[in-house]
Design a protein around this nucleic acid. Structure first.
Lengths: 195, 195, 195, 195
DNA sequence: GATGAATGAGCTTTCATTCAT
DNA sequence: CATGAATGAAAGCTCATTCAT
């Protein structure tokens, strides 16, 4: 009834999280000004103050998603190897994403659906991909990155569609075959092909 | 003005093609009863006669898409090898789809976005994937199929997002590395590693 | 609550009358889908079925107005003269409109405001004016019509703005001076300058 | 980016001119606080400081319009006659306004539409009309003014609606017939019916 | 079987206005 | 004095779906 809430720090972030939750549950179409306003406890009339159009809101939400996902990606890639085969990190990445609840997967799928038809979302993915590749280049040669990316994308996507149990060994097999074992990080000792 | 259209054979197919065209252009949300009716020259009131709910209509359209796309996939895979390395077919597949106009890609992306949240679409993709794998098994061992699938998916998807030119040699490199050269078709002569 | 109203003849006319009433009271901006729906007892969701856009609705309403007003205009002009000076009819017209409640005046003013910026309304007025002039030509030469029209318009408009009482004699003076007494109807006897 | 604008003289006038421009283009409804603020480069939050309600703003803008238009009117009327028939001035007035771009006409039409329903705008027009008549009385008897006014109004209005080319001679004919040639200015020599 | 008419629900967006600073 | 942030109210319009014919 009587919430002045003249200042509400973090409101923007709260809105964007609500947007992502709703998209994860109901698809992009489900993130309406109404549903988002309710989910984030912001008056509907205020939504357009923060995001003039619904599309601005979606785009901002996906930018946030890209940041968050890259953060998790980079965390895994940044950890020191300690003699471990760097390819194991890629396996871990794929397995983590493939086995997870799938919020990220659902959101990525929506993002791709938007991106194939809309330049703005395409640019967003491009810059995200570029950041991922930069992370990969810590351990792998530049040419390998796009292919690793693609394999990861395809495996994770299919893992969420398929009924078959996720097969870690198959993933490992594919990753190891795809990436040259000599393709070690510039700073790491190759080690004895750990694991 | 005065179209009796007492019998209208092919109406169902015309509707579904219109649905796919509209989804390709505007996303799933763009295929409304209204827009589809107009695009396929069918009275709006008749739409629910043919497809009781909008979702039935979308699902039927994607079934049609799966059939069409599998047809093209299988055509490429079915052609006799004549001593050619079967992996070259996979390369051809990826290149064809990756370089194409993208209608299929756009539609696939929409389908995946639906599938990750809706069982019915997931089942549709599963059966489609199963058919693809059956086609792949003509030339490759069963275990290889899912990985080939995944790589293909990822490469094609990224090719439609990326600004970089499509690199055939990189695709070939990945495919050849991923699939054992000994994994020849049961009926074919290995040949001299053509190309 | 439970009004099936599957068939509702005259609904279109009822809507348009409500539109005109609302415009007369609140201006064009006051005839919203909402207000009109309520005033004409039609579900709001049905409004766009009958008039796809609000502008279509307004235009149709003003077409109805033009018909109604021309009907009244023509009635006065059509009555046989019986030896009366035809110019007296023009005086009568102006006085009737100028002294009236002003619904017509208010509506005309709104129509003009739309017409000066929108071709469609301009065309509507043009055809209305042409019909008026056809009526005038029964009694006056073709060249006189536009000027009579204009004088009438100006006098009626100002009568609704001015605080001064409406002066019939001044109107008569202006009309008689403006129109040649010899400009009699083709079928009438000039008579002795009646009145 | 960083406009201090500590003092901004002429802001009020700039705002009102923007209001009039917007009304001319989009009608009264088009002059919103937002659109006006943008067009006049004034912060939106400041609009209500200068004009507490939107209606205050519109009224002030039309007051400005009345001043401007009367200024132009009076200029034409004030010029010494040098033996010219004063009625020629009226012709000139009508022709000038009728042939012009129509900004004034559009604005007048909007003003009338407001005036027929709102006392405040009616009062504004009344005082404007009174000033016009005062100007007319320099050359014509008091009784003639209202009729000249009305004819002018009607002719100009119709000229902006009609598709026919503006006919100067018809205007002159009407003006000369409507106004007694003896109705000369108190200070002028009648002259030989100059043309 | 096929469809024109109809509608409840909900959508995105605009807007006048308020008010703490 | 001036203004950025905010919001309740309402606007035009779309749409999936129903149903009498």
């Amino acid at each position: 009834m009587n919430r002045p809430r003249r200042t509400d720090p973090g409101r923007r972030e709260r809105i964007l999280d609500a947007v992502l939750d709703l998209i994860a549950r109901d698809g992009s179409a489900g993130a309406t000004y109404r549903s988002v306003a309710e989910a984030s406890d912001v008056p509907m009339g205020s939504m357009t103050y923060h995001f003039p159009t619904r599309d601005d809101m979606l785009l901002a939400a996906f930018e946030r998603l890209a940041d968050q996902m890259h953060g998790r990606f980079d965390e895994i890639m940044a950890e020191p190897l300690d003699g471990e085969d760097p390819r194991e990190r890629v396996v871990q990445l794929i397995v983590t994403q493939g086995a997870g609840y799938g919020r990220d997967m659902v959101l990525s799928a929506e993002l791709y659906a938007l991106a194939v038809r809309d330049e703005r979302y395409r640019v967003l993915i491009q810059s995200w991909m570029e950041r991922s590749r930069a992370s990969l280049r810590r351990h792998f040669p530049a040419e390998a990155a796009p292919v690793i990316d693609a394999l990861q994308e395809g495996l994770v996507l299919h893992s969420h569609i398929s009924t078959e149990p996720f097969d870690v060994d198959r993933v490992r097999g594919a990753v190891y075959r795809l990436i040259e074992p000599t393709a070690v990080s510039h700073a790491e000792v190759p080690a004895e092909e750990a694991r």
